[in-house]
Design a protein around this nucleic acid. Structure first.
Length: 238
DNA sequence: GAGGTCCTTATATCGTCGGT
DNA sequence: ACCGACGATATAAGGACCTC
């Protein structure tokens, strides 16, 4: 298994040096800010990621103010008070993308957010308290208790919310393979995800870097050499 | 070894936009 | 007016692994 230092050096070389590399790293996660996140912003981000999944992201982005209006600012408790008619009408509401199963996922996730908030004070507090070394366990919970929050959507969600998340992109997986980890080209199996988590935990201990940085450096060390603008897209920052 | 559960893999699907 | 691209999930079907 390669040391992380080797991988970082290769990433820096590709990007034009260590100084440039530093400017390309996402802002490190801040658990204090995360703990203050309100439940409506969490649900909004969930909905944003769910509706973006499978669509050109710019379409969702352009319509987003309409989504906020139609879904009452994503205030979960307010949404849960709405009768079936409210949800039925959304199915033909032109302010949003009229995808029945995704609309239903928002309703289900409103209940999910409220449940977690009951258990932990707020969804943000719950996330802030979950150990960064067990993202796989957190993703599993999101997938099982939430709706349509498995796989890559779950990873993006965590990153967008400001949790210290890695994202298993193609380049990320390729870099791990290159480093000697035996995983699939597009790793989704429990076995592969567990192996990835274990390796990242080791590198985290070795370097002291947050997982967002480990993740980004791995992706930048291999594959297409993307521009800063392209990388911005995976920051979860508009 | 039957029956069940968990995991993996393949396939269908969703709405909008831009191009024929 | 219709088709393909977009990205990831749900679902079904097939396999592997347990449990009794």
């Amino acid at each position: 298994m390669k040391s992380f230092d080797t991988i970082r050096k290769r990433a820096a070389e590709r990007k034009g040096g260590e100084a440039v590399l530093r400017t390309l790293l996402p802002t490190a996660a801040d658990n204090k800010a995360l703990a203050k996140l309100s439940d409506d912003r969490v649900l909004s981000t969930m909905a944003n990621r769910i509706f973006s999944a499978g669509f050109v992201w710019s379409v969702i982005e352009a319509k987003w103010p309409g989504f906020e209006e139609a879904f009452l600012g994503f205030e979960p408790r307010k949404l849960l008070f709405q009768p079936d008619d409210f949800w039925g009408e959304l199915a033909s509401d032109k302010r949003i993308v009229r995808n029945g199963s995704k609309i239903k996922a928002v309703r289900d996730n409103a209940a999910f957010v409220v449940d977690i908030a009951k258990e932990h004070g707020s969804f943000g507090k719950f996330l802030a308290g979950w150990p960064a070394g067990d993202q796989v366990g957190l993703l599993d919970l999101l997938s099982k208790r939430g709706s349509r929050l498995g796989g890559a959507t779950g990873q993006y969600l965590l990153r967008w919310l400001g949790w210290d998340a890695f994202i298993v992109s193609g380049d990320f997986a390729a870099a791990l393979q290159d480093a000697g980890l035996e995983i699939a080209e597009t790793p989704t199996s429990k076995r592969d995800l567990t192996a990835i988590q274990k390796q990242l935990n080791a590198w985290h201990a070795e370097t002291g870097l947050p997982y967002v940085h480990l993740s980004r450096i791995l992706s930048m060390s291999i594959g297409v050499n993307r521009s800063a603008e392209e990388l911005q897209r995976y920051m979860g920052e508009e």
